[in-house]
Design a protein around this nucleic acid. Structure first.
Lengths: 175, 175
DNA sequence: ACACAAAACTTAGATCACGAAGATTATAAC
DNA sequence: GTTATAATCTTCGTGATCTAAGTTTTGTGT
């Protein structure tokens, strides 16, 4: 058994304190995802589907674009999830008001049914994660994360203004 | 233009405080990744490659398994990254001590070269992220994230022990 | 009315990550 | 020594996510 040596670099070189935060955030995010995924699997719902189901339970009938905005995800991601959920019979996509462009997603009875089964699971996973943290700590955690998110968004916006953006994944013959 | 509408759900129903932490953590993790990716791209290195390069700069010659453990990633992930990095000429894989099973990865001169170009970029991205947080807040942030990671790891271990299927809130492991 | 811009959805291709299962090789048991 | 077990790497398929680019539809300006 190989023991992951977490302490190794606390005072070591090359590992600035700041860097550890990025790592901790990534690990925590992965933990959240996995913990929830394990639970969702029992209901045959994937993590990506849950994200959109959760939004639709609160606002049924949103368009794909609106859904992607609510979820903070791009349209292709929303598209893939919605297509799959339509196949699974959780949602149905329709046009309304004679608009042939906009596709609104509506939950089916099956989609509504899932709510009672799934929501408790999500709440449970989230409760477990913050065990042992008091109110003040949770507040600071929220505040700190919010600040980080804003700092990084600003950084990305600055970069974009200079013409630098997240590297393309398509047609990148450079590598 | 992606306008992140953060305020929308603050008072909305169905959005427990705890749940927001999971979301904030995910968004922060994504921010870190994107911010770093933008910078790494200038040196033609992907995020996944950086993770392993970073480890090798400190411990050259690790095996694939050791690398995957250091990185907290699985072996297929390490395998893909190493294969690509070998193609790119950043590392070289060799057997040592007559062991034909274990594959040790060694940085090439090119791999070492990247260090000076890339490390400052990572440090910069991380510095930017925590602007505006004082020492105490950073400490609590670290402590809270560490606790969350451990809580979720324990949760996952418990689930695995029970057969990977875990709904304590209800007795319906259907599907 | 017609051309053009903007909006909305789709498709394509890449990266990163994972689990499951296959293939080798090393080590332990007998 | 032969067989069983464990370690290690590899292959395969899936999913989530992204950027870029294509298609169709709607709306606007002249």
């Amino acid at each position: 058994m190989r023991e992951i040596n977490e302490c190794k670099n606390i005072n070591g070189m090359g590992n600035r304190g700041d860097e550890r935060i990025a790592r901790l955030v990534r690990l925590a995010a992965r933990g959240f995802n996995r913990s929830l995924q394990i639970r969702l699997k029992t209901q045959n719902v994937t993590f990506g589907q849950w994200i959109f189901l959760r939004i639709l339970w609160q606002e049924d009938g949103l368009s794909q674009r609106e859904l992607s905005e609510r979820a903070h995800l791009t349209e292709p991601t929303a598209h893939a999830a919605l297509t799959r959920m339509e196949e699974l019979g959780y949602v149905e996509r329709r046009n309304i008001a004679g608009n042939k462009r906009r596709q609104h997603a509506y939950l089916t009875p099956r989609g509504w049914e899932l709510r009672d089964q799934i929501e408790p699971l999500a709440i449970e996973a989230n409760d477990i994660a913050v065990v042992g943290l008091n109110t003040e700590e949770r507040d600071i955690l929220r505040k700190a994360l919010t600040a980080i998110i804003q700092n990084l968004e600003k950084d990305e916006a600055d970069a974009a203004r200079r013409g630098v953006r997240v590297p393309p994944t398509k047609g990148n013959p450079a590598a």
